[in-house]
């Protein structure tokens, strides 16, 4: 176990010399509530309710898993990218996603959840990743649609997380959001090139948008009245806006962007509602959402199998490095550059 002293939680307060009684817990809870209420950040060694910790671990882990599983649909096109410029952009993007996964696993470690343990839960299906990555990338245009729509939806979700009440998560998200900004733009630019290209390229772009639009809207999660965790997460300021609110915001952003692309969004009910100041849009097929979530999407099996294989086939490499370090370790040497 590699849980660090700096990462040890305040649940076991060693310095008080006595197990914290109920009175202590109440006092801690008051400080916690006041900190959250004052819009200040909770830091790793602060006391926090067990449920707050569990919610964060679940959410951060799911987020981290999404980053690394999300590498797969795009990496699927690295070896076929149609120009060297696009190849470089795509490799940099997929590499960023590995990096984002690392930032997030690192944030989860501050809550006492090791990466090994979280990966194990991912591999055994006990923790989830975003369902969007269970859809296949069938053509090159899908790389663009993922950048524009999937990353666009992710950014809409993530920007508020930069103000999340848990410090390490908020800081990781600041870094992620800064780096993500190019991801969405490159997708949009890629689609624009296709849309303005040959008729075949234009058709490819439209087909990709047709297939990715609805799954992107599902990324915001179930409607507010069916969302199991939303209310508590909002009270704890882990979550800042409701699923439906973010979804509306995303639709409003995408409509004019689609028009500039010269592509249509596959929803006949999509139209501006003057009264609400938002677009109305068609009903989302939540049956599909639930099926994909349950594991019945087109790529669920494939994604997790590849992830497990990479991990299993890499075991001997990780073991070798650990064995070498054990042989050559000279105590607690601290190196600097």
């Amino acid at each position: 176990m590699a849980t660090a002293a700096a990462h040890q939680t305040a649940r076991t307060q060693p310095h008080t010399g006595q197990s914290g009684g109920a009175a202590d817990d109440e006092a801690f809870a008051r400080v916690f509530d006041a900190t959250v209420a004052a819009d200040e950040r909770i830091e790793p060694r602060d006391w926090m309710p067990d449920a707050y910790r569990a919610t964060l671990v679940r959410q951060i882990a799911q987020h981290a898993h999404s980053e690394i599983i999300g590498m797969q649909p795009e990496a699927n096109w690295i070896t076929r990218a149609p120009s060297l410029r696009r190849k470089a952009i795509l490799m940099a993007k997929v590499q960023d996603e590995a990096g984002h996964g690392l930032y997030l696993y690192s944030a989860a470690e501050t809550l006492g959840a090791s990466r090994e343990e979280l990966l194990d839960k991912l591999h055994s299906g006990r923790q989830k990743y975003s369902s969007i990555f269970n859809y296949p990338t069938l053509t090159w245009a899908d790389v663009g649609a993922i950048g524009w729509l999937v990353d666009g939806a992710a950014i809409t979700n993530q920007v508020p997380l930069c103000r999340c009440s848990y410090g390490p998560y908020a800081r990781a998200m600041v870094r992620v959001c800064k780096e993500e900004s190019f991801h969405q733009r490159q997708g949009y630019e890629l689609l624009l090139a296709l849309s303005r290209g040959t008729p075949e390229q234009h058709a490819m772009a439209q087909d990709a948008v047709d297939r990715w639009w609805w799954p992107s809207l599902m990324m915001f999660g179930p409607p507010d009245d069916e969302s199991a965790h939303s209310a508590q997460s909002m009270a704890w300021k882990i979550k800042r806006h409701s699923n439906d609110e973010l979804r509306r915001r995303f639709v409003d952003i995408c409509v004019p962007q689609a028009a500039s692309l010269g592509l249509t969004l596959p929803d006949p009910d999509l139209k501006w509602n003057e009264e609400r100041g938002h677009h109305d849009f068609g009903a989302i097929d939540w049956t599909e959402f639930k099926e994909v979530l349950k594991g019945n999407g087109p790529c669920n099996e494939q994604r997790i199998t590849q992830r497990r294989r990479a991990h299993d086939e890499g075991a001997w490499v990780r073991e070798a490095a650990a064995a070498y370090a054990a042989k050559h370790s000279s105590g607690t040497e601290v190196e600097q550059a």
């Binding site: 690394i68 590498m71 490799m91 590499q95 990479a310 890499g314």
Partner: peptide, 24 residues
Amino acid sequence: GEWMGHAPVLEEEVALGNIALDLL
């Protein structure tokens, strides 16, 4: 680039990616 998504450890996804990008 063929390694991306298949590396033995996440840190190595990033390292091999860096090298591939330099070469490209």
